[in-house]
Amino acid sequence: MLPSSFKPQASAALLQRHKWRGRVGLMLVASLSVLAGMTDAIGFMASGDFVSFMSGNTTRLAVAISDGDLGLSARLTLLVATFVLGNALGVIISRASKRHALPLLLCIAMLLCGAAAWPWDDLLPALLAAIVAMGMLNAAVEEVNGLPVGLTYVTGALSRFGRGLGRWMLGERRNGWRVQLIPWAGMFVGAVIGALLEQHMGIRALLVSGLLSALLGLVSLKIPRRWHLGYMPR
């Protein structure tokens, strides 16, 4: 039989580990959201198309179809389909690497650096590489301590925050809704940085995004393996 004092101590230790897993996960979410916002701003300013904000591209696609603009409709359909493909590839790479973040983030870094090095005036191939990378990024973290998070889009995060705010105003005291502002803030800060970089470097600013992805991959090696298994998609 365990001493009676052992159970409270063990429970406290488990609770502390749970809190630290959540904090580390949210820091990772914030960092990856900065990467997403930076890349989206660079791609948008360089080409006029969104790299990770597929809601915007979907609305633009609908307008293009209503205007009868077949060329733009085909281009936007390709962008949205490429993003879906990137998400699928992210899960495949995650599973193939036994749910380690480093291989996934290194693949993303290679795609972004390749896009930055694209030598011709037609930016569509570079844009597609960046979109695949942003789709793959969503496989890096899917949830933190049971809370769903999005890395390359913030509409869901703002919606969950707003609904949580409404429940709080009604007197309900549920946990977790406030953290939904973290991916939004990360993406906003990243977009500001990306816009500034693009003004000075153009599409080659994606090199900074690629280097950030590689750096975050190396940092992820410091995160306990069992925590990663809880963050990444199953």
Score class of each variant (00 low, 15 high):
170 L>Q: 14
137 L>D: 07
168 W>S: 14
120 W>V: 08
72 L>Y: 03
55 S>R: 06
126 A>G: 11
74 A>K: 11
3 P>F: 10
216 L>R: 08
131 I>A: 03
179 V>Q: 10
132 V>M: 09
6 F>K: 13
19 K>E: 15
56 G>F: 01
106 L>Y: 11
202 G>H: 05
54 M>I: 09
6 F>Q: 14
215 L>P: 00
195 A>H: 03
42 I>T: 02
124 L>V: 15
173 R>L: 09
55 S>D: 10
219 V>Q: 09
12 A>L: 12
51 V>R: 11
213 S>Y: 07
225 R>I: 08
171 G>N: 10
187 M>T: 11
63 V>T: 12
20 W>R: 12
191 A>S: 13
231 Y>R: 03
192 V>W: 05
137 L>P: 04
62 A>Y: 11
61 L>E: 06
180 Q>Y: 15
19 K>I: 15
160 R>K: 11
187 M>E: 05
166 G>K: 06
41 A>L: 05
180 Q>G: 11
218 L>T: 05
159 S>I: 12
182 I>W: 13
98 K>T: 01
38 M>D: 00
232 M>K: 04
93 I>C: 07
221 L>E: 14
220 S>M: 11
215 L>Q: 07
102 L>T: 09
209 S>P: 00
25 G>K: 02
136 M>W: 14
46 A>T: 10
91 V>W: 09
190 G>C: 07
184 W>Q: 01
149 V>Y: 02
160 R>N: 08
37 G>E: 03
180 Q>S: 13
119 P>H: 09
147 L>E: 07
82 T>N: 07
144 V>H: 09
171 G>T: 11
173 R>Q: 12
119 P>N: 10
67 D>L: 13
150 G>L: 05
197 L>Q: 00
73 S>M: 03
19 K>T: 13
110 M>Q: 04
172 E>T: 05
114 G>L: 15
182 I>F: 14
190 G>K: 03
207 L>N: 00
218 L>H: 08
214 A>P: 00
145 N>P: 14
66 S>V: 08
69 D>V: 13
129 A>W: 12
204 R>N: 11
149 V>D: 02
107 C>L: 12
159 S>N: 14
220 S>R: 10
135 G>V: 01
15 L>Q: 14
176 G>R: 05
172 E>Q: 14
184 W>Y: 14
